[in-house]
C-alpha cells in the first residue's frame, strides 16, 4: 500500500512547528500504524534525515504511551482502538493521512509528535490512589463488593491515561480521564473514606495543570480507546458538589 503522510514536525517546545509531506511506500497491508511509521523512519534515516519522533511502548493497547492525532481524530477513526492497535488495512491505498500530536495547552510538544503528558501524573498524585498500610497483602476477599460495583470500578479503571480525551476535546478538558480515575476509587469501599478529598484535590490539580472546562460535547467519549463512559464525568460532578458542600459545612 502507498500513502501520502502530512506529518507535524517541530524541533522542540520553543520552536514553531510545521506540516511536512512524506511518501509512505510499499507498506504491507498487515502493518500497524506505528509499523508504517517505522518503515517511513527507516527511509528517512537512510536518506540522512532526522526520524519522525513519536511515543510508543507496549504496542498492544495497554500502556497508554502511544498517541497521534490521525486525520483530526486522536488514535484515528477506529472505535475503541489505540494508535498502536490501528492497522493500515483500515485505510485505502493512496490515502493522504494527516498526523499531528495530541494538542492541548497542558500537553506541550517535546518534539514532533511527542508531547509531555506529565500533567496527568500530577493529577494522580493529588488523589488518584488509596492510602493503605504496607505490610502483608490484605486478604483478597476480606471486603465484600457487589458484582455491579466491581464491574463499574473495573470499567473506569481500564483508562490507560493516554490523553486522547484531552486531545479531542474542543476545550482541552481532562474531565474524562480525571473522572475515570476518581470514580474507579470513589465507588469502592477501599476508596470511599478518601472520596471527598480525592474529588476536591484531583479537580484542583486538573485546573492548575491548565486544562479547560468540560462543556458536554462528548468528543472525549467518542475517541477514548478504552470506551470510558462520560457517565464518569457526571459522577465526578456530583461527587465534587457533595464534597464541596460537606467541606463548607465541616
Amino acid at each position: 500500500m502507498n500513502f501520502t503522510l502530512k506529518v507535524w514536525r517541530q524541533n522542540d517546545g520553543d520552536s514553531k512547528g510545521h506540516i511536512e509531506e512524506y511518501p509512505a511506500e510499499n507498506i504491507p497491508i498487515e502493518a500497524s500504524f506505528l509499523e508504517m511509521l517505522d518503515i517511513v523512519n527507516e527511509k528517512i534515516i537512510g536518506d540522512g534525515g532526522s526520524p519522525i519522533h513519536f511515543d510508543h511502548d507496549c504496542r498492544e493497547g495497554i500502556c497508554g504511551m502511544c498517541s497521534l492525532t490521525i486525520n483530526g481524530v486522536p488514535h484515528g477513526r477506529e472505535n475503541g482502538t489505540t494508535t498502536c492497535q490501528l492497522h493500515m488495512r483500515h485505510f485505502d491505498d493512496g490515502d493522504t493521512i494527516w498526523i499531528e500530536p495530541f494538542r492541548a495547552g497542558a500537553f506541550p510538544v517535546i518534539r514532533d509528535l511527542v508531547v509531555d503528558r506529565s500533567a496527568f501524573d500530577r493529577i494522580i498524585a493529588a488523589g488518584g490512589y488509596v492510602s493503605v498500610r504496607t505490610g502483608a497483602a490484605p486478604d483478597a476477599n476480606a471486603i465484600p463488593i457487589t458484582k455491579e460495583d466491581a464491574d463499574h470500578a473495573f470499567d473506569s479503571a481500564t483508562c490507560i491515561g493516554c490523553g486522547a480525551c484531552v486531545a479531542a476535546c474542543k476545550n482541552s478538558s481532562a474531565m474524562l480521564f480525571v473522572s475515570a480515575k476518581a470514580s474507579h476509587l470513589n465507588h469502592l469501599p477501599q476508596g470511599a473514606p478518601e472520596k471527598d478529598r480525592r474529588a476536591l484535590n484531583m479537580v484542583q490539580a486538573m485546573d492548575e495543570a491548565g486544562f479547560g472546562n468540560c462543556s458536554n460535547h462528548y468528543e472525549c467519549e467518542a475517541v477514548c480507546p478504552k470506551s470510558i463512559s462520560a457517565d464518569n464525568v457526571a459522577k465526578l460532578n456530583r461527587d465534587y458538589a457533595a464534597a464541596a458542600v460537606r467541606k463548607a459545612l465541616a
Partner: peptide
C-alpha cells in the same frame, strides 16, 4: 488553553 489542529475534525 485549547489548540487548533491543521486537520480539524468533529466526532
Amino acid at each position: 488553553v485549547a489548540q487548533k489542529y491543521s486537520y480539524p475534525a468533529t466526532n
